[in-house]
């Protein structure tokens, strides 16, 4: 268990470094890698570990970015918790899992925009915000095909293509 915790935190750290490095931005938007890893931990691992990983990843994201400190920490913590609670609904159902990941990334971006604006960041002044949020959701979903198997196998110690969290898993193939 302790090994899994360390792996989860290392995965989050790597995601933050990659996210803040020159990450490919096709069409002017980038997938949210840190949020994806937090969602993966929520789907495949212990809910408490998901919440802690979400907070750590979000906090590091805040420290290495220029948005107010604590904003990403709040958002990714909530998204990771949401993923861990959604796990039962997504169990064994690929379509539900895809829809869940898409909805969680979109909800995370919207929460970020609203809370950031409440704290004076002016994100809602961006007239292309809706397109940006949707594009980030789609790109994150595309990247999920690569990231979630890595989280499932290398972090959670499960199968490469698993549809459920800890316990009996059902492989896609």
């Amino acid at each position: 268990m302790r090994r899994h915790r360390i792996r989860a935190l290392i995965a989050v750290l790597i995601a933050v470094i990659l996210q803040t490095t020159v990450f490919p931005r096709p069409f002017g938007a980038s997938p949210n890698l840190v949020m994806l890893v937090a969602i993966g931990i929520g789907l495949y691992m212990d809910p408490e570990l998901a919440v802690v990983s979400g907070f750590v990843g979000g906090f590091l994201n805040d420290l290495l970015g220029n948005t107010i400190l604590g904003l990403w920490a709040l958002v990714i913590t909530v998204v990771a918790y949401g993923a861990s609670q959604y796990r039962r609904q997504a169990e064994g159902n690929l379509i539900r899992m895809i829809l869940g990941i898409f909805a969680l990334t979109i909800a995370g971006q919207i929460l970020f925009g609203i809370v950031g604006t409440l704290f004076g960041q002016g994100f809602l002044a961006d007239t292309s915000l809706v397109i940006g949020v949707l594009l980030t959701g789609v790109l994150s979903l595309m990247l999920a095909v690569l990231v979630l198997p890595l989280v499932s196998r290398l972090v959670a110690g499960g199968r490469w293509f698993a549809l459920v969290g800890p316990g009996p898993e059902r492989a896609i193939w």
Binding site: D46, P47, E48, A50, V51, V52, G54, F55, G58, D62, I68, L69, G70, L71, A73, L74, T77, V78, Y81, S84, V115, F119, G120
Partner: peptide, 25 residues
């Protein structure tokens, strides 16, 4: 119990985040 602990953790981290944001702003 696990559900409750993760919810308690969530509330704790949300409160910490709000405090951090307020301090930063």
């Amino acid at each position: 119990r696990r559900f409750d602990r993760s919810t308690a953790l969530l509330i704790t981290f949300v409160v910490i985040s709000i405090i951090l944001m307020t301090v930063d702003v």
